[in-house]
């Protein structure tokens, strides 16, 4: 019944500096002009246009079937496993718009390479924060019904093929916030994501594990310390 207006433009009062540095490949303890990181975060604060959209569908986990008007069968094991105890699924999309990208390119064009890189990283942090804010809203909505939410799972994670992106974007109604796909299935604006969250009853603890310590790629430059 509440399908028609699932657009949320969250407030981001700051860009996460530490995440920005991590996305830029800067590790802790490195001597780096912090002012440049601040400047990049500021530029993204000025140019971001955070928007999110989501849609909820019943989910038949026995057949890995998302019960949308056009049924979607989840391919691959990782996402099936991720949604193993879900009875409903939320498809979502989040973006910070196109202006952040222009800001990064502008910086490169002016020969401010490091700043351009950091703007790109800050924009990535901003998209994640935008999606986090949407999750807060969704938690409020579904926790009171007793659901637990799995973490966000995006095309490209595990063996969920990136080529599913068009179906995911459609299920999320990403177009409503201006997120579209190129012929090669890339999201436009580039600083956008799509993802699925499982709504799981009957779980006392959230089982799916999130975070770098569970990942096997030990030499990843994005790996969080600790």
């Amino acid at each position: 019944m509440e399908q028609q207006n699932n657009i949320y433009r969250p407030i981001l009062n700051c860009i996460d500096r530490e995440e920005t540095k991590r996305y830029a490949g800067l590790r802790k303890g490195q001597d780096f002009p912090e002012k440049l990181v601040d400047e990049a975060c500021n530029i993204v604060m000025m140019s971001k246009e955070p928007q999110t959209v989501w849609t909820v569908y019943p989910y038949d986990c026995c057949h890995a079937c998302v019960q949308a008007p056009d049924e979607y069968f989840i391919p691959g094991n990782s996402l099936r496993k991720h949604l193993a105890s879900a009875t409903q699924v939320i498809f979502l999309s989040a973006t910070v718009g196109e202006m952040v990208e222009e800001a990064s390119s502008d910086a490169f064009a002016k020969g401010e390479y490091a700043l351009g890189m950091l703007i790109d990283a800050a924009a990535t942090a901003a998209v994640e924060q935008t999606a986090d804010e949407l999750e807060k809203l969704l938690t409020n909505k579904f926790a009171k019904l007793g659901f637990k939410m799995t973490f966000r799972f995006s095309p490209g994670y595990g063996d969920w093929d990136l080529r599913e992106q068009d179906k995911v974007a459609k299920l999320a109604n990403a177009e409503a916030i201006g997120v579209t796909l190129t012929d090669s299935l890339m999201l436009m604006p580039r600083k956008s994501i799509t993802a699925v969250i499982g709504l799981c009853p009957d779980i006392e603890e959230e089982t799916p594990s999130k975070g770098c310590n569970k990942c096997t790629k030990l030499d990843c430059s994005m790996r969080r310390d600790g």
Partner: peptide, 13 residues
């Protein structure tokens, strides 16, 4: 790390 490399490139520029 890369951001520092880019700073060096800026100094060269």
């Amino acid at each position: 790390f890369l951001p520092q490399v880019m700073l060096a490139a800026e100094a060269m520029k």
